[in-house]
Simulated assay, not measured.
Amino acid sequence: MRVAYQEVIQTLEEILFKNGFSEDRARLCAFLFAKASLEGVASHGLDRFPVFLEMIRKNLVHPDAESSLLDSYGVFERWNGNLGPGPLNAHQCMDRAIHLSKEFGVGIVALQNTNHWMRAGNYGWQAAEAGCIAICFTNTKPNMPAWGGSEPRLGNNPLVIAIPRSKGHVVLDMAMSQFSYGKLKTYLREGKDMPFDAGFDMNGNLTKSPESVISNELALPIGLWKGAGLSLLLDMLATILSGGNPTFQVGESGEESGLSQVFICLDAEKLGIMDWSDQKLDQIIGDLKSSLTFGDKEIRYPGENNMKTSEENMQNGVTVDDKIWKSIIEEL
């Protein structure tokens, strides 16, 4: 079904206000959830909203808790999320990284003791729209095996890289697993198998079954052993820079809470790359687009369809699963 964007915003805002958010914080949090679905990432937008409310009820997310500054070293700051809402903590820390980069050329913010930031790409777009190159990443609970392992020890630790560009920002938003768990749950709800191998079953065989992967928490690392290695290093960096929990400690409670995250920004103007940035990016994308393809395949760069999808959903209404929207409306 489709729901008008403003109706989505107003509905989520009202529900969040009822659940202990101030008006301003409810408005921003509602916007971040709605933005994800507006731009075609429902798996980490409206699909996740009922899960977010459940985390509040379990006292894993504290609606009134705000992140606080722990340490400041010029271009680098360390913050404590105080188990506040993950999307609000991430938005605030990306904003700080942007401001630091505007002052120093580079800004780095590490965040401990936070919660799931929902759609990771939101914070890449936030930076790109401010004229900043951005890299940000988070750890998660254990939901992916070490290469050759038979139990979840690594997180699928999402990574975002964003580059501002006049003709359309380039924003890569990816987990270290072949499919995010949000996408796996979307396919499971629709009764579909994944289009490619998504993880391992209990016998160590590759499977396209989302149910099997979710129940075992044995998602397939991207690039096989390479993705497993990258996941480990992202967890290490997030942990040592923030002073927060590594993946294995996040998993000890059985819940995904108390995560560690990093936000890095480079201001294009401050670093003197504005004169050639767009030209070189356009050349790279032009070369990419000129690639021959198999059949009628289309070559796209990360984030290319963002504007088109957003405009379509703004005009026709945001696409949302009937059952998900019903469960959201029941919270009013």
Results as ranks from 00 to 15, higher is better:
100 L>G: 03
76 F>K: 05
305 N>R: 15
186 T>Q: 14
246 P>N: 12
199 G>M: 10
280 K>D: 14
28 L>S: 11
288 L>F: 00
205 N>P: 04
269 E>C: 13
152 P>R: 00
214 I>W: 02
313 N>C: 11
222 I>C: 12
14 E>Q: 13
42 A>Y: 01
264 I>W: 03
93 C>D: 04
301 Y>W: 13
58 K>Q: 07
43 S>A: 15
230 L>W: 01
146 A>I: 15
160 V>Q: 01
3 V>T: 01
170 V>G: 01
56 I>C: 09
29 C>A: 04
38 L>C: 11
9 I>N: 03
324 I>T: 06
124 G>A: 12
121 G>C: 08
135 I>S: 08
294 F>D: 10
60 L>H: 12
209 S>W: 02
291 S>L: 15
255 E>I: 10
115 N>T: 01
181 Y>W: 11
228 A>F: 09
245 N>I: 06
276 W>K: 14
26 A>T: 05
236 M>Y: 15
198 A>W: 01
4 A>T: 08
235 D>F: 05
47 D>H: 08
77 E>F: 02
54 E>Y: 13
174 M>T: 13
139 N>G: 06
200 F>P: 01
252 E>L: 09
102 K>T: 10
301 Y>M: 10
255 E>A: 11
71 D>L: 12
34 A>S: 09
181 Y>N: 07
324 I>H: 00
180 S>W: 06
134 A>F: 06
327 S>Y: 09
96 R>A: 02
269 E>N: 11
109 V>N: 02
120 A>T: 04
237 L>M: 13
322 D>Y: 02
293 T>M: 14
24 D>Q: 15
330 E>T: 02
228 A>L: 13
95 D>R: 13
265 C>W: 07
280 K>C: 15
252 E>P: 04
291 S>T: 15
208 K>V: 15
303 G>V: 03
261 Q>E: 09
59 N>R: 13
258 G>Y: 02
197 D>P: 04
267 D>W: 06
194 M>I: 07
131 G>R: 01
17 F>Q: 12
21 F>P: 00
125 W>Y: 15
76 F>A: 04
111 L>A: 02
161 I>Y: 06
88 L>Q: 02
205 N>G: 05
320 V>W: 08
142 P>M: 03
10 Q>D: 11
61 V>T: 10
81 G>M: 00
134 A>C: 13
263 F>T: 00
171 V>W: 02
93 C>N: 06
237 L>S: 00
156 N>C: 10
128 A>N: 04
174 M>S: 10
224 L>Q: 07
240 I>L: 11
299 I>A: 06
246 P>M: 14
316 N>I: 07
161 I>V: 10
294 F>T: 09
42 A>T: 05
301 Y>F: 12
262 V>I: 15
60 L>T: 02
53 L>Q: 08
168 G>C: 14
179 F>R: 02
20 G>A: 12
232 L>S: 05
113 N>Y: 03
99 H>V: 15
159 L>V: 04
167 K>L: 09
89 N>H: 08
93 C>L: 06
232 L>K: 00
244 G>C: 03
292 L>R: 14
282 D>V: 03
183 K>Q: 12
189 R>W: 01
79 W>S: 06
249 Q>E: 09
109 V>I: 00
299 I>D: 10
160 V>S: 04
117 W>L: 13
77 E>D: 01
51 V>P: 09
40 G>S: 11
253 S>T: 12
138 T>C: 05
255 E>V: 08
76 F>P: 01
277 S>M: 07
11 T>K: 02
141 K>N: 09
232 L>C: 07
108 I>F: 13
70 L>Q: 05
